[in-house]
Nucleic acid binder design. Structure first.
Lengths: 108, 108
DNA sequence: ATCGTTAATCGTCGATATTCGATTTAACTG
DNA sequence: CAGTTAAATCGAATATCGACGATTAACGAT
């Protein structure tokens, strides 16, 4: 990475200057948290280990289609993943992405 | 806080169950980072210690008015503050808010 | 195969974001 | 005071979001 002109400082810059993270990557993840309903869903999924879509709908007085839309956004951001279980879908946090987000925010 | 019916568990819940952070507070801050241009501005302000508005405009090919708008949003979110310096305005990160954001995200 | 349940998708509406050029405001300079 | 520079604000066009009800799709059970 960086370059292949390895004459000087072969590993230094890679280690000492963590490249500035892609603003789009941060924005994309932050966007997942940029709505109270989505934050609440994430909090729910953290509180319980996982959660059926229907339970989320019950807790959060918003229409089922609206919740589904938010779940889609969270899924596209990679913040959650859903596992089909018969006619139900069980959602849970995608831990790695959440850690990535924390690390990226931490870089600021 | 909590309530004033102090009969049982006077301090326990406040200390052992860090209350679930207000989703709106998280969303409001995350919203500030939910656009690549705003992330880049924040990165600029971290990289340099502070930055004149004009410098930001030069770096980031967007119209001056657009940058000004993003700066306004960041300021309203409390993520930056601007200090008038003659005809110029010098922007810098508002450290406390950024730390708050990190802490809130960390709570997930 | 049909029904009932669960979740995703579609279509629409109003609200809000994003961007720009043009104008205004503010402050220094000669 | 007139002129210059810097930044904010205005106004408008476009795009995207957020919400909902209605419909569709997927699956289990009878």
């Amino acid at each position: 990475m960086t370059t292949s002109t390895t004459s000087c400082c072969p590993t230094a810059d890679a280690n000492t200057l963590p490249p500035i993270p892609d603003p789009e990557a941060i924005a994309r993840l932050a966007w997942g948290l940029a709505h109270p309903a989505r934050v609440r869903i994430l909090q729910l999924l953290v509180e319980r280990q996982a959660c059926i879509c229907g339970e989320i709908v019950e807790v959060m007085d918003l229409a089922q289609s609206t919740i589904s839309q938010h779940l889609k956004i969270l899924k596209e951001a990679g913040l959650i993943k859903g596992e089909v279980n018969g006619p139900k879908v069980c959602y849970c946090i995608q831990r790695e992405t959440l850690e990535t987000l924390k690390r990226l925010i931490g870089s600021l």
